[in-house]
Amino acid sequence: MTTRDDTRIFEKFSQYIALVGRGQKSGKTMNQAQAQDAMARILNNEALPEQVGALLMLLRMREETTEELSGLLLACRQTLPQSISTLSSIDLDLGCYAGKRRHLPWLLLSVILLAQQGYKVFMHGLEESDSNRLYLDTVFTSLNIPIAKSVEEAKLHLAQRNFCYMSIKDLHPQMASLLGMRHTLGLRSCMHTLAKMLNPANAKASVHGVFHRELDNHHIEVAKILGESKVACIRGDSGEVEATPEKAFSMQYLQSKNALTREFPVLLSQWSHQTRQLQVHALPQVWCGELDSPYGHAASIGTAAVALSCMENLSTEDALSKAQKMWDERNKVWPIV
């Protein structure tokens, strides 16, 4: 039963709907403080489901400003579990929310490659059960790689193999619930963008993947507004944080408060055929040298190079050279038993 106090709380939230929803001529954008307050109210259940859906869809139709995204992101970070702060010295954050359609998630081999060199990598994502894409939850389960269900388990996995994966359902249940509204609303919202930007473990570097043009610039501008450094974004395969070796691509990145661009060349001269079914067990086979996959090799090297370029401020050539050397000298024993 809704009380009078509840009504007052919900009326406070309606001001943000009115602010952005008055139409093309009268509608305005929220400043950072307003966006942060709006998201804080959502995450604290101080908005009705109808209000939440209305605001998210209004923002999608108009497209969020970088100032709005920065405020929304701050509220999401402030409601992370306090235990996440005990994860320290994470080198790389990867938000993996897009899933794969045409190719396997070769980014996993890039992560293992970096982990063998001592880099600690924190991965997070969400599986959308009604999607025809392949998500890391399924990949990890199929390959018997444990998924961390808590921060303590994440610490254990990082200690054992220098990388871990957590579902946002366990990491930030409120955000997971909002991400799940896609099934009700029929469209994705800014929550998917915020999840990729989240960097929950406060890693030293964070690399994002997007699909649509110009969104990579948005990610970097938000990081700049929030005073972050060592943040990079690429237009990755299927929108995932994975290099597309069949064509040249750009890495937008932030180093020492400067927004810059690095160009990566075509890494695979021959276009790869799309497979009808993604065979997950090809990942360890390629790693162990039992199966040859020119695409998988090029995607793994390219993704590792993007991460190295961001973490160590390496040029494209140096990053690719270092990633290839790491691949050639890797321990070919599959690291997860």
Rank of each mutant, 00 (worst) to 15 (best):
C233W: 07
V210M: 15
P265I: 00
G236E: 04
R188P: 01
M191L: 10
N202A: 05
L215Q: 14
G289R: 00
F264H: 00
L198V: 04
K204V: 03
M251W: 08
L260I: 08
A298D: 00
A232D: 03
V266C: 04
H297A: 09
E263D: 06
K230W: 00
W271M: 08
D216Y: 12
A243L: 13
G209S: 07
D237A: 14
Q252K: 13
M197D: 04
H219L: 15
C288K: 12
V222I: 10
A248M: 15
L194A: 11
M197A: 15
F249Y: 11
K247F: 13
T193D: 10
L278G: 08
L260T: 00
S250N: 10
R188V: 02
E246R: 10
W271P: 10
N199K: 02
T275D: 08
F211V: 14
S206A: 11
H297F: 09
R188M: 09
V210L: 14
E240Y: 10
W271Y: 11
E221I: 15
Q255F: 07
E246Y: 07
Q279H: 05
Q285N: 09
H218R: 11
Q255M: 02
S256V: 00
W271V: 13
Q279C: 09
S272C: 14
M251S: 07
D292L: 12
K247G: 11
L278W: 07
S293Y: 00
H192Q: 12
V231L: 02
Q277N: 05
L268M: 00
K196H: 08
T261N: 08
L185T: 01
A282R: 12
K247E: 12
V280G: 06
R213L: 15
H212D: 12
R235N: 14
T275F: 07
V266K: 11
L194D: 01
C233R: 07
L267M: 03
Q274F: 14
S250K: 10
L185V: 02
C233I: 08
V231Q: 05
A298Y: 01
K257S: 05
L226H: 04
V241F: 13
P200N: 02
E221H: 15
Q255I: 00
H192N: 12
S300G: 07
S206T: 04
V286Y: 07
N258L: 05
V210S: 09
E263G: 01
S269M: 02
I220H: 13
R213P: 15
W271S: 13
S272Y: 04
Y295S: 10
P265F: 01
M197I: 09
G209A: 06
A232R: 01
K196A: 15
N258G: 03
V231S: 00
G289T: 05
H218D: 14
K257I: 03
